[in-house]
Design a protein around this nucleic acid. Structure first.
Lengths: 231, 231
DNA sequence: GCAATAGTCTTCGTATACGATTTCGTACTC
DNA sequence: GAGTACGAAATCGTATACGAAGACTATTGC
């Protein structure tokens, strides 16, 4: 069931036409992967020459890759100084989560009418795994399942732009995703319950407004829990 | 009153620290400007060497600029073929408008509490100009005022991410902005009225939900009008 | 006359090279 | 001992050069 994760990690721009992968593309994918999986943690200094050497290419393709990642907000760039992995100070986290709550809410609502019983069943299965996971709590695994769950719900969104925005949001949070629930384990329990409620809403063919509001609140609540924890 | 337009046209990523403008940055700004102002219309073939020559730089900075524009969705890129200005087929227009309705609605709602009487007065003045403009209808001028009006309302949005998304949305529509109201002049009248309603809502300190809904519907209505017209 | 193929021409992709800028370390002075 | 200035190392920014891929055209064979 890796497809959902792959979907979230999917390139936000041009998905490389099948076989021919330019070095620029390779560099983009490689650096992005390292950022998302945490090998390059926030603040990490991205030295062009070093990356180029690691990948066995020259610096030019790497520069392009970095530029694209910059436009996506995954790296911060300073002229004549270099690129660093975009950190997420608490303020940034807040903004990103708020943005995600809005676009993900919309994506989920738009996606809802296209979600069939099979999808709901899959989502419910994932949520069951999450519930199990609550016993011997494993934040990393839990967060991963959480991503899978939501992917199922919004991946059907017919508007590719919005879907893209959701992906970008998730990617930005990728580096500290695994720690969110570590900070506020209590929230994990509520989250699972809210997931079930959301599924019932979708099953019952509720209105888009209602679903959007529920999805948005679901995320806002996680944010609020985080904020309450840190203060 | 060019500041609002400048705000919408503001770089969506790194705003070049005052004096030092790298050639890469120049190229980015130059190409973007030409796309937004319509010198390069959708489908226009962006030949790297030619642009580089025009700007008096080499192709490398131009490539980077194009890459960034690609990530913003203003340019479409095909490996070994080249870059073209991203066109907006009707489907694309629909998606972009829908996305914009969502993020702009959210931005306006978040911005509302920070909007003072002075801002409202400015917005009302712009709307008055729009009303005048309805007599001898000038679509281009009307659309420009429309942009100014909304800029005033959402520019205060405290969440920079969302604001950025709104800017990107506007930019994507830039090339055919001037023609939307040309197609559906009737919609222009309603639009002005809805603007006034929106202002009253903000003045009265209405809830965020209500403002968001109103702002979103305002844009959706324009979209619907366009769709009704084309079918 | 039409189609297929070969050749050329345009344009992109990447490597290498060099100048420019920043940063860090060291030595010197107050 | 602290602060400043000078210099070297690291790194970025851009130009130029060459190889490769796609597109267009002309020629040849049927």
């Amino acid at each position: 069931m890796n497809d959902t994760a792959a979907a979230v990690g999917a390139p936000t721009t041009t998905p490389t036409t099948t076989h021919a992968t330019s070095k620029s593309e390779q560099a983009y994918a490689a650096v992005k992967a390292r950022i998302v999986d945490g090998s390059y943690s926030p603040g990490y200094r991205l030295v062009l020459a070093k990356i180029a050497e690691d990948l066995g290419v020259s610096v030019v393709p790497v520069r392009e890759a970095i530029r694209r990642l910059e436009a996506e907000g995954l790296v911060k760039f300073e002229r004549n100084v270099g690129a660093t992995v975009a950190g997420i100070d608490p303020t940034e986290y807040l903004y990103t989560m708020q943005t995600l709550s809005i676009v993900e809410g919309a994506a989920t609502a738009l996606s809802a009418p296209l979600i069939g019983p099979a999808d709901v069943a899959r989502a419910r299965a994932v949520n069951a795994e999450m519930r199990e996971c609550l016993e011997h709590f494993d934040p990393v695994r839990f967060t991963r399942l959480n991503q899978d769950f939501h992917s199922i719900l919004f991946e059907n969104c017919p508007n590719p732009h919005i879907l893209d925005l959701v992906h970008r949001g998730w990617n930005r949070l990728a580096s500290l995703r695994s720690s969110t629930f570590r900070f506020v384990p209590r929230r994990a329990h509520e989250s699972v319950d809210e997931h079930e409620a959301l599924l019932r809403l979708i099953e019952s063919g509720a209105g888009a407004d209602e679903i959007e509001k529920a999805a948005r609140l679901h995320r806002s609540a996680t944010l609020d829990a985080y904020l309450a924890h840190s203060t």
